[in-house]
């Protein structure tokens, strides 16, 4: 008798359906990336080790880097003034490189809330925050936050009072934006290391506040 296909045939021993493996055909751009990478190595323009090192360096960047910058700005008024005046140069004092893209730091206050988007694509301060979250690149966020920012922020759990002005920053060209969140109350005794723990990624994009201390 031919094997019959009931649902139980497709369940793993743990009782869950088997998931397809990633064995589908490469997309055009995946194939292009592999071909380009192999050619660069073959023609001795780059070594495989250099490519690995660069990928690893990119992977090491994380919101913890941006958090250090924010914590220093909270603790050091002169640093903060320099950071707001010239973000690209000032992060260099802490060993972070702005690279080809320049950095603008925008400060949240009791009366102003800043939020960052790239409506055209996915521009993001990767040198300080690492890779952007998926929602940052999706059309829902990109198209809605410029039209109904308060509604979008509310969906992130951030309800702003009417007397706080919202400033949306669209990274349309060569600038990258970092939000300097409001320093939480009750943190006067904390040093920069402890303060950095309160600086979450979303607060530096502007869709959240910094975390309140425990």
């Amino acid at each position: 008798m031919p094997h019959d296909h009931h649902d139980h045939d497709h369940l793993s021993p743990s009782g869950h359906p088997y998931q397809p493996d990633q064995d589908h055909t490469l997309t055009r751009w995946q194939a292009m990336e592999i071909a380009m990478r192999e050619l660069l190595v073959e023609k001795e323009i780059l070594t495989a080790a250099e490519i690995t090192q660069t990928v690893e360096a990119m992977d090491r960047r994380s919101p913890a880097d941006g958090a250090q910058v924010v914590a220093r700005a909270w603790s050091d008024p002169e640093f903060k003034a320099r950071l707001l005046a010239d973000g690209s140069t000032t992060i260099g004092e802490m060993g972070f490189e702005a690279g080809a893209m320049k950095l603008i730091v925008v400060e949240n206050t009791a009366t102003t809330h800043n939020v960052v988007v790239c409506t055209l694509c996915s521009c993001y301060p990767r040198n300080l925050l690492g890779l952007p979250p998926d929602w940052y690149k999706q059309r829902a966020y990109r198209s809605r936050v410029v039209k109904t920012p308060r509604k979008v922020l509310s969906e992130f759990g951030l309800d702003l009072p009417d007397d706080v002005q919202v400033r949306v920053h669209d990274s349309t060209a060569d600038m990258r934006y970092l939000v300097l969140p409001v320093r939480p109350a009750g943190t006067d005794d904390l040093d920069a290391t402890a303060l950095a723990e309160l600086v979450n990624r979303d607060s530096m994009i502007g869709v959240a506040q910094a975390t309140a201390p425990e």
Partner: peptide, 27 residues
């Protein structure tokens, strides 16, 4: 390159969520 600040009322007219909120873009 110039950073230009627009009021939401200018961009979205009557549909603006809060007319005095702003959007900055590099043009």
């Amino acid at each position: 390159l110039l950073r230009v600040r627009f009021e939401m009322s200018e961009i979205w007219g009557e549909d603006a969520e809060t007319p005095t909120d702003t959007l900055d873009a590099e043009i």
